[in-house]
Design a protein around this nucleic acid. Structure first.
Lengths: 210, 210
DNA sequence: AGGGCAATGGACTCATTGGTCCAGTGAAGT
DNA sequence: ACTTCACTGGACCAATGAGTCCATTGCCCT
């Protein structure tokens, strides 16, 4: 949607719609989120939904995916851009778990969307894949920084480790969901971060208090 | 559904419905699977669907979840009941990846269902959680066997490692989906199985050809 | 052979939902 | 003040999809 003809009030309404839709999708999935429930939650009307998202539900969901991707990355600041020490990784880990706890649901706004997107909308899937890649690259950069400063084995494969960490998060959340508890997520993260510690050079600290 | 009044033909039809529904759910999700498409794929009629699954779509999906859970475990035989050596783990891993490749989609019949179930049907979620627990316990038993035979550190937490391995599978598949490639799944599995190797006792072989 | 019930076919109903349309309202700029 | 256009309200439409109902077929058992 073009931003050329939109007032401050309009932008606020539009953003309100996106955020409310995001919450509903996290809670009930794309299929369980209807334009009517969004309308009710945002105190708007059908025409507003189509005014701000001419492409209808499809476009709205894509905008939500974009927004959630940004939010997820932002929630990991500032550590996500450091990760140059084990202490930084520890802080990042704690913050991330807190973020998911704060959501009130054991689900990743991006991850659970990814599963649904593949079946519904290829463009949405591409958007989400881009968010994932961005996230993965941020983690990989941190590992690279540690490698550069000699904290981990130069032979370590940063890309592969980053993918494994992301997988632990996503998979951990899948398992945490039915348990309604953080321990599967934390166990998976522990194990994979241990693996990261294990590629530490013999001379450096290779274990953290757990 | 009671099996008391069902003929061989009936049972076959019922099973055909379950399997076709399972395929459609894997491809399009629960929401994307309609009774009409199931009817078309199985050459049945609406009344048959309700004849075999009086509870309607809800009951049908639950039966599918049960069936898929059994299939998934069966696909890992016989290794899933061994896992007492690193070689057995390696064979198990190769077989599992092959199984997912064979499905033609980078998704787990149980895992992707789990994400959707939480938003739709608590009983379905419970069914899936039970499958996951069974799976996890099978893996944990294997680790226990290795511990008993002295192949891994007695201090290793089998339950935690099993959860981490499952998380790597589920998360790896989430990441593999948009990539349309096995490497994220394999990377995640590699990393977490490496972690298992690392808890090997110093006297035993602690690395595998990769 | 034939009675009975499982199995099947398919039209029909009703609720939901995405999307359209047009008529009002209000705020920003001149 | 007034004009304009973004913004808003809500009735309406068409498609879809779950579930119902009843009539018909055909297999199993005696």
């Amino acid at each position: 949607m073009d931003d050329t003809k939109i007032t401050a009030r309009g932008r606020a309404t539009r953003q309100r719609i996106i955020e409310a839709t995001g919450e509903q999708i996290l809670a009930s999935g794309i299929g369980g989120t209807t334009l009517d429930t969004v309308r009710a939650a945002t105190l708007t009307s059908k025409s507003q939904l189509f005014h701000y998202f001419p492409g209808g539900k499809t476009e709205l969901v894509r905008e939500v995916a974009l927004w959630e991707g940004q939010q997820l990355l932002a929630a990991q600041e500032p550590e996500i851009h450091d990760l140059s020490t084990y202490e930084s990784w520890e802080r990042w880990r704690a913050g991330l778990v807190d973020y998911y706890i704060g959501l009130g649901r054991w689900a990743c706004p991006i991850g659970s969307l990814a599963t649904q997107a593949a079946m519904l909308d290829p463009e949405l899937e591409a958007t989400i894949a881009a968010s994932m890649r961005q996230w993965r690259d941020a983690l990989a950069s941190g590992i690279e920084r540690m490698r550069a400063s000699g904290l981990v084995d130069p032979a370590a494969d940063a890309r592969k480790l980053a993918v494994s960490i992301l997988a632990a998060i996503q998979g951990g959340l899948v398992l945490s969901q039915p348990e309604r508890a953080a321990w599967p997520l934390e166990a998976a993260l522990d194990t994979v971060l241990d693996a990261l510690h294990r590629v530490a050079l013999p001379s450096s600290a290779s274990s953290l208090p757990r």
